[in-house]
């Protein structure tokens, strides 16, 4: 994957806007833009992970929200235990909590992925949904961690140089995480793993015929997608200082799929633009009308039927 000059210009311009967002927000007197920017970065991380699975490997998972929620609950539960003294305070440091929020989903995805990948096509869509629903109801059931009512997190995970109430600082953390994730994913895209995944999507039998067992590659993609979902979930819970089963709701999985397709399936960078498009559409349509979904629904249908390259395809011109 090599970006065209036009694509590079689009990426650099977008990055410049993102980097300058807090200044723009301050000038406009809209501090909530910073929160929106953080939301875009966070959803983009989860969507980019899903694109590796959905777009690059051709495995449409309907359960990405499970990993998002698991990552989020990991940091919230650690904070709750540190709060009541049953765990030492250092578990709320970002250096510990965030890797934990990546690891927990990754380990679970290793087992669940091995099961799910025994199925293909629609069965794969459904079994990933089934596992996500199981986690959803598990968190609904766990009264110790709030159940339906959710679990508040009194303060954000401790970060060096950034105070717990510093929204702008936290935004830059999210942006840095996103950029890092995208650079890593870009390497993966171009690596041997990425090429094999592309081959699996195009024709799995051919991979088998040339003596490659696709299973470990598919599992690797599944686990990687789950890890990124977990990281995004941890950041999301930090942003709002609240975890609830809504994070794992199947519509959340649906929205992540929408972001990937809206941005441009299988294009890596597209996930960012898809996430931005959906978050901004949501906010600005919601300001314009309470019934914003009546606009979003047809947009979605139109994108699927007509504009298959998505936002990135339109901007990047490929």
């Amino acid at each position: 994957m090599v970006e065209t000059p036009r694509q590079v210009v689009v990426l650099l311009a977008s990055f410049a806007v993102m980097a300058g967002l807090p200044a723009i927000a301050a000038a406009a007197g809209r501090p909530d833009f910073v929160t929106l920017g953080s939301q875009v970065c966070i959803m983009a991380i989860a969507a980019a992970g899903l694109d590796l699975l959905m777009g690059r490997t051709g495995l449409p998972s309907f359960g990405q929200a499970a990993w998002f929620g698991l990552g989020g609950y990991t940091v919230a539960i650690l904070a709750a235990h540190a709060g009541d003294g049953s765990l030492p305070g250092w578990v709320t440091g970002a250096w510990f909590a965030w890797p934990a929020a990546i690891l927990v989903p990754a380990v679970l995805a290793l087992g669940i992925g091995a099961l799910c990948l025994r199925t293909t096509g629609i069965s794969f869509i459904m079994i990933t949904l089934a596992f996500a629903q199981m986690f959803f109801f598990l968190f609904v059931a766990l009264k110790a961690y709030g159940g339906d009512d959710g679990l508040s997190m009194r303060r954000r995970n401790a970060l060096p140089f950034i105070g717990p109430r510093d929204d702008v600082g936290f935004y830059y953390v999210c942006l840095a995480a996103l950029v890092l994730v995208l650079l890593v994913l870009r390497r993966v895209w171009r690596s041997r793993l990425g090429v094999v995944l592309d081959g699996i999507r195009q024709n799995e039998r051919r991979m088998l015929a040339i003596g490659l067992n696709p299973f470990p590659y598919k599992l690797a993609a599944f686990v990687l997608a789950a890890s990124l979902g977990g990281l995004a979930g941890a950041l999301h819970v930090n942003l709002f200082r609240f975890a609830s089963p809504d994070l794992l709701h199947w519509t959340q999985s649906g929205e992540l799929m929408v972001m990937v397709v809206l941005g441009g399936l299988g294009s890596l960078w597209g996930a960012v633009f898809g996430a931005a498009a959906l978050v901004l559409l949501h906010v600005f349509l919601a300001q314009w009308t309470e019934h914003w979904m009546i606009v979003l629904g047809p947009i979605l249908v139109a994108v699927v039927l007509l504009a298959r390259r998505g936002v990135w395809g339109a901007l990047g011109g490929r």
């Binding site: 449409p60 869509i125 799929m257 009546i294 979003l296 629904g297 249908v301």
Partner: peptide, 18 residues
Amino acid sequence: AHLDQVLATFGVILFANE
């Protein structure tokens, strides 16, 4: 592809609910 079907009909749900 099933993915397209899922997304387009997801869009129909949003529309119908609103």
